[in-house]
């Protein structure tokens, strides 16, 4: 079994729900975002970029690409970063020495460091901590804990707390546009494979940062939007 995720950019509406549920479910401390959504070339919220005389604002969610050839895993001196049997790149918080070499190595800038002891948010009484409230260990390795140690690196785990129970990652569960599809790459009947075959909606897949030869297991579907869409073109809509 090998987990993969598809992000259909033609469907993505740029709402950032994936980023927020990711943070909420995974108890990501203040300042830490495993998942982020910006429009390529127009990083300011609600702006466009001029392309070929037209405008574009193509939303592109980016989280850990779960690389088959993960530079972060190669970089990690202690083996804290490792790939589990499902192909998911995880961090063992107990083994991370906080050298941040993995952050240097990751071309996607998805790795986040606990620069301070996570604070929780002020509540009516004391502090309130959101997120999955239990530790998750994989072969003894601490791959998730709501109580983050200071000085360690963290990142998307494909929601190991849910996927280890057969569920989908929170971002895929919550995407209101159904733009995120998760499943077993090896299983031809999985949601992932079905979507990849174009059985749901035929689209062209591609991966981010090919120049880094990372072989991601997060695959994007190209948007069908035309750059000159301001003008539009005729005769493409079939009457039914």
């Amino acid at each position: 079994m090998k987990y993969g995720m598809i992000i259909d950019l033609d469907r993505c509406i740029g709402c950032r729900t994936c980023a927020v549920v990711c943070k909420n479910h995974n108890a990501e401390p203040e300042g830490i975002w495993w998942n982020r959504v910006f429009a390529s070339g127009a990083p300011n919220y609600a702006t466009a970029v001029a392309v070929d005389g037209g405008m574009r604002s193509e939303f592109l969610p980016v989280s850990c690409q779960q690389c088959e050839n993960a530079p972060c895993e190669t970089a990690c001196p202690t083996g804290a970063t490792y790939t589990d049997e499902n192909g998911v790149v995880l961090v063992d918080y107990d083994s991370c020495i906080g050298c941040r070499y993995c952050m240097v190595a990751c071309p996607y800038n998805v790795r986040q460091f606990n620069w301070q002891k996570p604070q929780g948010i002020p509540a009516t009484e004391g502090t309130y901590s959101y997120g999955y409230p239990f530790e998750v260990r994989q072969d003894g390795k601490l791959v998730y804990t709501p109580d983050r140690p200071e000085g360690v690196v963290e990142k998307c785990t494909f929601c190991v707390q849910y996927t280890s129970e057969g569920g989908d990652p929170a971002c895929c569960v919550a995407c209101p546009a159904n733009a995120r599809i998760f499943g077993d790459i090896d299983d031809p009947d999985s949601a992932y494979s079905q979507y990849m075959k174009g059985l749901v909606s035929p689209k062209e897949p591609y991966t981010l940062g090919d120049e880094y030869h990372t072989d991601p297991k997060v695959v994007y579907m190209r948007s069908s939007r035309k750059a000159d869409a301001r003008v539009g073109s005729e005769g493409e809509v079939t009457e039914r």
């Binding site: 990083p43 940062g209 069908s224």
Partner: peptide, 25 residues
């Protein structure tokens, strides 16, 4: 270090924002 472009165009030269971790500060 991540540079992206439009998914249906070849070039990818726009830097993609990073979560700084600064907000807590």
């Amino acid at each position: 270090t991540l540079f992206t472009g439009l998914s249906n165009q070849p070039s990818a030269e726009w830097a993609y924002p990073v979560s700084t971790g600064f907000f807590a500060g």
